[in-house]
Design a binder for these strands. Sequence first.
RNA 1: GAGAUUGUAGCUCAGCUGGUUAGAGCGCUGGUUUGUGGCACCAGAGGUCGGGGGUUCGAACCCCCUCAUUCUCCCCA
Length: 447
Amino acid sequence: MQKPSLPEGTRDFGPEQARKRAWIFDTIRSVFVKFGFQPLETPAMENLGTLTGKYGDEGDQLLFKILNNGDYLKDADPELLAAKNSAKLLPQISKRGLRYDLTVPFARFVVMNHHALTFPFKRYQIQPVWRADRPQKGRYREFFQCDADVIGSDSLLYEAELTQIYDEAFAKLGIPVVIKINNRKILYGIAEAAGIADRFMDMTVAIDKLDKIGVDGVRQELLGRGIPDTGVATILDVLSEPSFQALRPVFANSETGMKGIEELERVFHLLGKTTLHNEVRFDVTLARGLTYYTGCIFEVAAKDVKMGSIGGGGRYADLTGVFGMPGLSGVGISFGADRIYDVLESLNRFPANLSETVPVLFVAFDDTTHEFAFECVSRVRAAGLAAELYPEPGKLKKQFEYAAKRNIPYVVIVGETEMNTGMITVKNQISGEQTNMTVEELIGIIA
RNA sequence: GAGAUUGUAGCUCAGCUGGUUAGAGCGCUGGUUUGUGGCACCAGAGGUCGGGGGUUCGAACCCCCUCAUUCUCCCCA
């Protein structure tokens, strides 16, 4: 007899948790639908070639690979095997992997189905993704993402609308957030102004850490990455600017940087015509790791809770290009459902009524009354309402304890008297009040 | 991949510098109540002390190995 356990970084979700999670998904989905996004589902596994090379070297490391079926070593190169060369051996023993995010499978889907799609194509997708990461606070190896992406339009309207979606969804979820916006073009402009356009990636990785390691930390990081003193000075100077408008003089010689400012200007202009519940803030230090972002980038942080970002996204000018279909611009956002769950739990913001299961439980004394109770419970269900009948007639104590543990607010007692008169005894579990009535009257109460 | 942390009953945890039959609270089962849950009281079940090896007269406690957890770095939702 072995002790059962779960793989590292995965979890079961009991009834209570599953209800709360369903509420999160339903809430987010309702906002997606309101903005005209259509549902999409893709397989848990993709061909490995679809996934590799999309998330950088580090991302490839974090992909879960699926071992081929059957005699998977049959075609393996003996030399590679002997040399224990895992990297080169991999394609010979694994041709599939678990999806790492929902964006790349979406791009794959669009390329495969572009003939049947109407552009701009707006889809939402709520499914688990897997990363072979080291689990820690707010980080799991299996977690759900809720994505909304538009592909086939470069209109900045969508940047504004996706911001609205974030704002509305988090308002509905009851989580106060800050929605941070930046633009990769602005980051590139800074790199150009600092004369280190070729070290763009190094720069973004470094300044992304500002709120974590401080100005001095960023300076060390930049210098450590081999960026010259003059460049570092320019970069640190820019980081203190709270407004993207102030960057205009810096971008005097950077066409890309100016374009970034114009894009943000347009997005904020549109957002200015609506009312938002949460703060939307330009943040020059927002960089985000994924390599394919080219325009606006988003990140959502919960206020008052120490947690990594609970949402992120951005514009990618050419995501489908790697699948042989260049020129399709896309923009999307993602909600981290598992972290949102953790935030709601620590904020104690889940709606109270989520713990209620069914409104009424029928209990009986013997086989005869049990059968009559079965008729009664069926009539309640026929009226479209949820109801349960305790499986065994007999001791009331046991049946009442069951009702209490299940948080069932009404218990109907069906005995000989009730059966003969048709007047069932209905007990309100919260007030303790007990009254006789017909099944129809009960239906009226719980409806 | 690197570092730290924790692992004792179903759950949360005590368990002294190594010393007899390893404890508590909650939960669970039965009873006080064969037409009434929460409260109270009574009784009871439940533990290879994560696993393996070692030191010792003696190990939950010390040492080594191993597995797992949680957290930090890297990176990310």
